[in-house]
């Protein structure tokens, strides 16, 4: 489907959706995140939540405080002004252990792609990913930027639950799956970094639009980093990325 003009859609009387397209595309994501930033910098009273996704921004609002038309006008004005994202995206380096027992589905991915396990690790760790959105589960980060050679379809039926902080691929995308649950994705590793920790002062630290790289570590290092993370010392490294 071709990408037409952005559309403003109602989802009931308490949510508006600004839809920029219908596909997974970094240019569409940029527009979503730019609008998200602009509204976040100066939120109108009564705007309750902003939910960026691949191709739209959902705005939950209290219609008894914020009039639908006022919000719509604000959004349309920002979109017409072609707001751009402020600043450069943050680049995070996440340690990732691909070895057994963490990369438990690597053999299956090797079977489906024809790549060796070593090549799978090198390819996955050699790419830079964009956080398109969170969804599905707390802190479940959908990542774009998976090299095409690793684009395996998702499983026809889910596999048993994976441990927390699994690094997964499927359907042409990559993800970090924070919470154990059955999944149709392939588990190729695990990160000791906790993208989501409800008890931590900053429960989430990676935002939509941020970039992620994975740095291979062995099991011993993984265990040591997991202990540091548990002691409250973050093991994800933050760097300023060049846009």
């Amino acid at each position: 489907m071709s990408e037409g003009e952005p559309r403003l859609l109602d989802s009931g009387e308490a949510a508006l959706v600004m839809e920029f397209g219908s596909t997974v595309d970094p240019a569409i994501s940029d527009r979503v995140l730019a609008l998200d930033d602009a509204l976040g910098a100066d939120p109108p009273e009564g705007l309750r939540e902003r939910v960026p996704t691949y191709r739209s921004l959902m705005l939950h609002y209290d219609p008894l405080v914020l009039d639908r038309e006022a919000l719509a006008e604000r959004v349309q004005t920002l979109v017409a002004g072609a707001v751009a994202r402020a600043g450069t995206p943050t680049l995070w380096t996440l340690p990732c252990c691909y070895d057994a027992p963490h990369g438990e589905d690597i053999a299956q991915v090797a079977e489906r792609t024809g790549l060796s396990p070593e090549a799978i690790v090198a390819t996955h760790a050699g790419a830079t990913y964009r956080v398109y959105m969170y969804g599905f589960a707390p802190g479940f980060a959908y990542l774009g930027g998976l090299p095409k050679t690793l684009a395996v379809p998702r499983r026809a039926s889910p596999r048993p639950p994976h441990p927390r902080n699994a690094v997964v691929i499927g359907g042409g995308l990559a993800a970090v799956a924070t919470v154990p649950m059955p999944t149709g994705w392939y588990v190729i590793g695990a990160t000791p970094a906790r993208l989501y920790a409800p008890e931590r002062e900053q429960s989430f630290f990676i935002g939509a639009g941020d970039l992620i790289r994975f740095e291979p570590v062995d099991v011993t290092t993984f265990d040591a980093l997991t202990a540091r993370e548990a002691a409250g010392e973050p093991v994800a490294r933050r760097e300023e990325a060049v846009r």
Binding site: S11, G12, A15, S22, T23, V24, T53, S56
Partner: peptide, 15 residues
């Protein structure tokens, strides 16, 4: 009319 898969987007209660 045009398929049942869309690229994921936000979901309100009651959708």
């Amino acid at each position: 009319a045009k398929g049942h898969d869309i690229v994921s987007d936000g979901v309100a209660m009651g959708a």
